[in-house]
Design a protein around this nucleic acid. Structure first.
Lengths: 227, 227
DNA sequence: CGTAGTGTTGAAGTTGCTCAATCTTTGTGG
DNA sequence: CCACAAAGATTGAGCAACTTCAACACTACG
């Protein structure tokens, strides 16, 4: 059995996402078309309207998927975390822009060879289908939040969503600024800020700098998210 | 070559969706596991929380995919039209309910045999992936509408979206009541109604009964949807 | 230690929601 | 075929929530 490339063996996303469907021997084929890429915070990886030249596995960092209004106002329609698959195979031009919110490491696959590889390796296509369906479910959860919840509930929901992605104990480091939270929640910066302050006053959270949040009462936060 | 079942040959959804990936000979395998089902308007096909026992191709009619708030308020997160694929293969329990908005005909596939068939027929899995990705794109367009547009723009967007699905000339028959439109747009019945009236007064549309709409000025409607 | 970028707070203005009454449409039974 | 009932839609008035505009405070980084 051919041996697994050392870089893959050491990769923190090795068992996640696309890579997880390739065995130690098979991964060589994926590795052969992959290229490492490091993106600083703020860098645009894919531009809406441009042809989608590559897909990738996100190794470290957080990306936003955003769409622009006719007026230029931006709405965040998805976030990507380590292990997530970036881009759309089989798609034409990008509909959304993908931007790094923090410094990020990616394992990039050019579109054409990736699509060939998918044809040859059915489990990968099935995984992408399952991923797409679960992303769809998440997008619909977001639709529910945007359509039915008020500002308080939106902010509380968002904090809980972030908490499921990454917490160390009750400490949470937000990957987004207040402005970006507003873009995600369909609120203004000011409204997000006021709701955060209200949560602090209600002793549900505590702030530590602009990005740091300590969850003091998760049960209460969950109640506020829906009620 | 084995001949195509007459029911498939005569089916208006034959070239659409899942069926379209099966040739005249191959379709027999899909037909063998399929069962016809007719659902009257209002019938719940899949209940949120219940196990998802089947998938289907929608042949005629319109279905809504809806999700409930903790408070019981409903948000429509998707609509299904003839040719669309109903349900989620590889999923556990249903997250959303699926309800017939009009009388509907379906071609129903039990989950287990369908999943076997998908494994044996890779083009079908690829089609479902492409479909899932385009449904995701549509869901994200909806997120943009819910997050960034006011009531006027939401209603105008919705009418345009419906117009892309089915129009005869400038006549459009809405598959939803005002109440259901509100559930889809995150608005109340009253607000939807007021916006419709405003569009009539602006001579952009004309109403014919509760469900009938005539599009008098599509360009203007498109402007109102985004501006 | 200063400055630029972010975040917070306040006051006033708009938008969409709630509650309540009235009007249309549609479908059913006489 | 018409009358009537029930469901759905429209309209109005008052109110609450979110946005806008503007000033000020924090924090993080050079």
């Amino acid at each position: 059995m051919p041996c697994e490339p050392p870089r893959c063996a050491a990769c923190s996303a090795r068992s996640e996402g696309l890579c997880g469907t390739f065995s130690g021997g098979e991964i060589t084929a994926l590795f052969a078309i992959a290229r490492q890429r490091r993106a600083p915070a703020g860098q645009v990886l894919l531009w809406a309207g441009e042809p989608a030249s590559f897909c990738a596995t996100l190794v470290t960092g957080v990306l936003k998927i955003a769409r622009q209004d006719a007026e230029g106002r931006e709405q965040i329609v998805g976030l990507l975390f380590p292990g997530d698959f970036v881009g759309e195979p089989f798609a034409g031009a990008c509909v959304d822009s993908v931007v790094a919110l923090s410094d990020a490491d990616l394992c990039v696959y050019p579109r054409a060879p990736l699509e060939h590889l998918l044809e040859a390796h059915p489990p990968a296509t099935r995984l992408l289908l399952r991923r797409a369906l679960s992303t769809l479910t998440a997008a619909r959860r977001w639709i529910l939040t945007l359509g039915r919840r008020n500002a308080r509930q939106k902010v509380a929901s968002f904090l809980l969503e972030m908490a499921t992605r990454s917490t160390q104990g009750d400490r949470l480091e937000l990957p987004l600024s207040r402005g970006a939270m507003g873009e995600a929640l369909g609120l203004t910066i000011e409204t997000v800020s006021r709701q955060m302050t209200a949560l602090v006053r209600a002793q549900v959270i505590e702030l530590a700098g602009h990005r740091g949040v300590r969850l003091l009462n998760r049960a209460q936060l969950a109640t506020l998210a829906t009620l």
